[in-house]
Write a protein that binds this DNA or RNA. Structure first.
Lengths: 342, 342
DNA sequence: CTGTTAGCGCGTTCAT
DNA sequence: ATGAACGCGCTAACAG
């Protein structure tokens, strides 16, 4: 027993029975006598037998593993989602293999290849921020590995996806500002290659035109989420005449940079310039200078929904192809505590 | 090609060679002719062949996977560490399987069993907060799966562990307070079953006695990290005569609760009661009411060190047993921005 | 340089 | 109610 790890063969030999008997006894096959079943189970326990799931996976062509590919494991938004995915997977006796692309397409490609070779039963993906071509996802189709995109989803049809409802979320933010009298509302958006960026601008445009406000493209800027480009964009936005009185930023990280910029330039936050962002940090309640409000995006729910959908696909025993699903998670505008300037 | 997934057998058949030739050609075995190698590699590409790592793992008894078990995937401290582990693993062509115990010993047990059955090549573990018995780790030894404990480590010898240097970290905090004249310093510690709790108290005691200050056990309290018990502990601490002028809390979550308690009771933070904590949130720089200082614990470095150590063990080809390592990560006291009351 | 063969651990026929 | 035999995809002897 010390020369290696216990297998059903070892148990069979000890008991002078066939391996198939052991196999059946362990999996509770009804054709095995009670006495035999008990003997086998007890010996298995004693020899601390743990079935080799690897061998089983190999034979059954089911690994019991799903993959999870996100840009960055340490970002709060994603780590919440990951937690949800793990919880959901565990309920189905599944395990989760992780990978982070660091927003590099090349790394994304390598991880997808690795997941494929590992033969994961399914994959949840949030795209790298500049991913434009989806050809590296072809392999997954070839290997019949179902994919659920989540949060950062591709703008192509015929894929399963779970994402934030940009339309209702953005409407809440813009209308909130309009209701408070703002007419010069700036939009500090993300990289233009991201579908969500395009949609955010679209909704912004619609909200304004509904109020018969003509859209000023000088009030729309992009950042690649780095501080430098955010500062640059702010410079541009604040140079517009008349100056915007509010700005909607793509996320909390950018909002923090914007707030920093505002302070550096002697402006008063939420008085001279009101800031609203899309929440992806857990901190807004404790901030010294928070945005006036944030659109909560419920990362846990998103991860949960993605995992539920994926598990449905993975466990789908009918073999019938499942129509492509698109789940939208509703955002919710949260107004933060201290509102000195209202 | 549509009836399934490409295997070396398919490639071999197409080329009228043996599977072993294909296998060798693909793995760059030198005994294969250049022409053959190229032909094989090209065809593999065309058939979008991806080696079945599952089958390889099965044969080689090496999965190329390491497990990572932490209490909670979404806590900032752990998600930083996870990111480090994934980065480190990827450099070695390894993948990471995750599990969260939610601080429940039973769940911890189940995940360890699952990891064992998956035959991970190694495991990084941060213990559930009340785990006292380590018998569920025995299996790993039986299966020769190396384990590196990290952050929440067991207080037994003969294990590999990476953790924060409690002694130097705590000394920095206490001495900082002593230097500023505090003599009634409270300690709001964690559950007493955690080794780090015991050590923290020990260091606290030593620092005080070095200054010839007699230790008052009324100034030491425990919390199980929930708000309720934290409040309860605070009540007790503030009832002491004379009242403490400073409190060292086990982490930022508890510190936030303490700060909340202070406000509710009409005290002025860092004036009536100075708060220092051990950092595990990324937010202290942005807080409206931050602790006066935090002992930074560098979760990324801890995860990195744990992964490096584990990879050493996993890749250790000598077969010689490696002596048990204990890596300590030095903390660093960080004093926060606004210090009105100094 | 390349082919043949065996076997990793397991579930699953097909026998008995 | 149990046993014998097979094969999943791949690598590694061993043979030429």
């Amino acid at each position: 027993m010390a020369q290696g790890v216990t297998t059903i063969k070892d148990i069979a030999r000890q008991l002078n029975v066939a391996t198939s008997t052991v196999s059946r006894a362990l999996s509770g096959h009804r054709s095995i006598g009670l006495g035999m079943r008990l003997k086998v189970q007890q010996l298995a326990q004693e020899m601390s037998y743990h079935p080799n799931r690897n061998a089983i996976a190999f034979k059954q062509r089911k690994t019991g593993i799903i993959g999870l590919l996100v840009p960055n494991l340490s970002e709060h938004f994603f780590s919440e989602a990951i937690s949800a995915v793990e919880n959901q997977a565990m309920q189905h006796q599944y395990q989760v293999l992780i990978g982070q692309s660091h927003d590099e397409e090349e790394r994304e490609r390598r991880i997808i290849a690795a997941m494929t070779q590992q033969r994961v039963d399914g994959l949840i993906v949030s795209l790298a921020k500049h991913t434009l071509h989806y050809d590296h996802f072809q392999v997954l189709q070839h290997y019949q590995i179902p994919v659920v995109f989540f949060d950062r989803v591709p703008n192509i049809p015929d894929v399963h996806k779970v994402h934030f409802n940009m339309e209702s979320g953005t409407k809440q933010a813009i209308r909130f500002l309009l209701d408070r009298g703002h007419r010069r509302i700036a939009l500090l958006n993300g990289p233009e290659c991201m579908p969500s960026t395009v949609e955010r601008t679209q909704v912004y445009r619609d909200c304004l035109s509904q109020q018969r406000i003509k859209m000023d493209m000088g009030l729309v800027a992009s950042t690649d989420l780095t501080r430098a480009t955010t500062f640059h964009a702010m410079e541009m936005l604040l140079a517009q005449k008349p100056r915007p009185t509010a700005v909607v930023t793509i996320n909390d990280y950018v909002a923090l940079d914007v707030i920093e910029y505002i302070k550096q330039h002697g402006l008063v936050l939420n008085k001279d310039l009101t800031v609203i962002s899309y929440a992806n940090l857990p901190i807004t309640n404790y901030l010294e200078s928070p945005p006036l409000a944030s659109v909560e995006q419920f990362p846990y729910r998103q991860g949960e929904a993605a995992a539920e959908l994926l598990m449905d696909l993975v466990l789908n025993k009918t073999g019938n192809p499942v129509p492509h699903q698109q789940v939208m998670i509703e955002g919710q505008l949260v107004v933060h505590g201290k509102q000195f300037w209202l």
